[in-house]
């Protein structure tokens, strides 16, 4: 039972983090709070993928003794899985691009309606 909890608890904390972002996206009425919730959601997904890649007793995905002429055999089990790192590297940059476009739209909304609260914007649209 203790091994079960130790093996799984970080997945549960990542899910709680993701749900905090989801709740902020759904129920907060301020537009910048919604964007902060979206940021938390995306980082929770990224941290989940990185924790899949972790291996016990392995080193960083940078080859040791790489320029010795190949005397040391390279075994895949002694290096951390590099593939999720690459995919999440792409995802972080796309996350910041999404954040920039969303904030540009928020600034445009503020210029037109002079508020960031959803209820007041809806009242002014009518």
């Amino acid at each position: 039972m203790f091994d079960f909890i130790v093996g799984k608890y970080n997945y549960w904390i990542h899910i709680i983090l993701m749900m905090i972002g989801f709740y902020a996206m759904m129920s907060k009425r301020n537009l910048i709070k919604k964007i902060i919730g979206m940021n938390i959601f995306q980082t929770a997904i990224i941290i989940f993928f990185i924790s899949i890649a972790a291996k016990r007793g392995a080193t960083l995905p940078i080859l040791e003794h790489a320029h010795d002429g190949g005397e040391h055999a390279i075994e895949a089990i002694s290096y951390i899985n590099p593939l999720p790192h690459v995919l999440m590297l792409t995802a972080i940059v796309v996350m910041v691009a999404t954040l920039g476009v969303a904030l540009a739209v928020v600034i445009l909304v503020y210029r037109k309606y002079d508020t960031l609260e959803e209820a007041e914007i809806l009242k002014k649209i009518k």
Binding site: I32, I35, I36, N39, T43, I46, I50, S51, A53, A54, A58, T59, L60, P61, I62, I80, H85, M88, L89, I92, V93, M95, V96, L99, G100, L103, V106, I107
Partner: peptide, 25 residues
């Protein structure tokens, strides 16, 4: 966790540029 490149990118892009964009907004 051993993801050094992702940590670098998050420290520079996620925490640096993202915070600057949010402060400007």
């Amino acid at each position: 966790m051993g993801a050094v490149d992702v940590a670098f990118t998050e420290a520079s892009v996620g925490a640096g540029i993202g915070t600057i964009l949010l402060i400007v907004a």
